[in-house]
Write a protein that binds this DNA or RNA. Structure first.
Lengths: 193, 193, 193, 193
DNA sequence: AATGAATGAGTATTCATTCAT
DNA sequence: CATGAATGAATACTCATTCAT
């Protein structure tokens, strides 16, 4: 019955918050934002509805927190991987993308789903765009260093390819030939390897 | 004062039905299925809520009708365009895609949005898949006739590219360089032209 | 193309009216008043919704017409059967009741159902009561002429027996031993026959 | 400021649930199932519409709960009353019936009303039948032990009498000579007392 | 007279959010 | 801090009734 220290409290809160974020991400991604009720999240997280509201002001803010967190993780993980050889860069890029897609499948799925729900997207559009643009710039830089013309356009195309693959993959995860497409992609962008 | 003829009634119904389909497609696409209420559709169509239900048994069936209609139009318009020269085929393919995308923008946007709403997608997955597969087969046939190996995989890649482009386009219609991407695409797939 | 005479028109109207009454009685009795829509009646009668309203001001008035008609028929058919021998009277009474029950089964069922729908009953209570009381008086008269004391109470009991039997019969028409109960009844009220 | 204990929550729920059951029974019985809206029940119970749905999944389930509860009470209260003398049994039976009728008037009225609403009855028919049959068996046993032939048929007749009396009583509660009918009934079934 | 398209008030139901304890 | 009872606004859907032709 010794009173918990401030640290213990904070750790607990952090754990609860993480659990909420975790569970809602999963539910939002697999069932959709509208078809996931606060009640369901609470149940999945093993806590009460009220407690969710002590962490997030509203369902919308919870969603926002998930998105923000997702982007942060994504960015943190992508920013590394310097490589002197531009061609490897490109291979890394493609590798990275696939790694990310599979590692953060759930977030990715949620994120793409949101892109098409205009009512929701509006609120996060800017955040999403910033992230996306940063990514494109990275692609473009590599293309440019490889002497490719229209580097930004090429970056856009690569981005579109990635998005399209992800989209199709999520639509029919079980049967989509993700790996074989990766091979084709590598062959196309790095023919001389 | 003589009663309306059967034809008159049918014409009235057809007109109303078209208006409903039209308006809901637009609203579903721009605001999302969940965020569009029957009330809103009624208002947009200038009719009463009840009348919608005299045409469609439920909101779900209305959506289904929209999807079905969309696919039908799409298919009807794509099925033509025979061309003796396979290379032209490919150019046509890309042309066609862009034409379709712009002509039926709204439906396209709805369709993509639905792909990520698991609760909804389930009901129409099969319909969507059939359509998509038919499209891929067409692509593959062309690749095959051009002597390209892995024709089906290449078809999948092209499909992904198209989807990715559409997705990005819808996310930021105003600034997306749709036309320039088309050029890049044509150059890539038909380098010797 | 010769114009129909006034008589022909009236005959047609009467026929339509009869069909409406007939069909609604059946539907109200078997599905319940609330669970029968005007649309269903129109369909069952092979006419349009509007036409029903040209015969009856409202669904309620249609019900009222059915009830009124039912009572009229009932009364007309019961009023006859004079019999010099009081004991035969009693047998007749029981016979009559069973005959009526089976002949106008549908109306009977509707009528009993309405007795317990307070919202509806209120409007027809008086009509129903008058009819019922007249019936009871007839019973009482017979009991009195047979020298039975408490004739009115006995009439009430007989009435209750009739109602109870009908009720149970309607609840499980297929298995209810209607005929055997009649025998028991006759034996009880006319032991020396 | 300490959170409510599980017991406190349970007590709250139980109180609310009882209030809902209580009020709906009354309203369903006096106004009919269809003519009682959830809104009315909420108002009568002094709670919000939503709260009703946290206790019962639907209006139908609420009705079912009422019926189930009614039968349970009925059965619990009837099951007692052993008596060595069969004749007393019979008197008890009649007594019991009248006691029940008056004690649970409202439920009785609801129950009878439902018997004639085909759409509703279907769902509960079996439950109702089971209860009714158990009751009839009890009656039959007594008749048999009194050496009466056709015991089951006699039971059915008694059942019908009870139902008929109840029905008439509910139709015109104020003026129906319930007590005097009881006397007549007792005299008829127990003439030598 | 006859049709059925059109209306809109009414109803069950859901769910994010609040709040007393 | 934590709970879940309670609220009420929002939403899909039904159906009696009206009315133009």
């Amino acid at each position: 019955m010794s009173p918990r220290t401030r640290e213990q409290f904070q750790a607990m809160r952090a754990r609860t918050r993480a659990k909420i974020l975790d569970r809602s991400l999963e539910l939002f991604a697999t069932k959709g934002f509208h078809d996931t009720s606060i009640q369901m999240i609470a149940q999945a997280a093993g806590i009460s509805k009220g407690l969710i509201y002590s962490h997030f002001k509203s369902k919308d803010e919870l969603l926002e927190a998930i998105i923000r967190q997702g982007f942060e993780i994504m960015e943190r993980e992508t920013s590394g991987s310097a490589d002197p050889d531009p061609a490897s860069y490109l291979a890394n890029l493609i590798d990275d993308y696939y790694t990310m897609l599979l590692k953060h499948e759930t977030f990715w799925q949620l994120y793409m789903g949101l892109m098409f729900q205009p009512g929701i997207v509006l609120r996060y559009k800017e955040t999403m765009m910033k992230y996306y643009e940063r990514m494109l710039s990275r692609y473009a830089r590599i293309f440019r260093s490889l002497g490719i013309k229209n580097a930004m356009l090429e970056a856009r195309l690569l981005g579109a390819i990635f998005d399209g693959i992800a989209m199709n993959y999520f639509f029919d995860r079980k049967h989509y030939p993700l790996k074989r497409l990766k091979k084709i992609l590598l062959r196309r962008y790095l023919p001389d390897r």
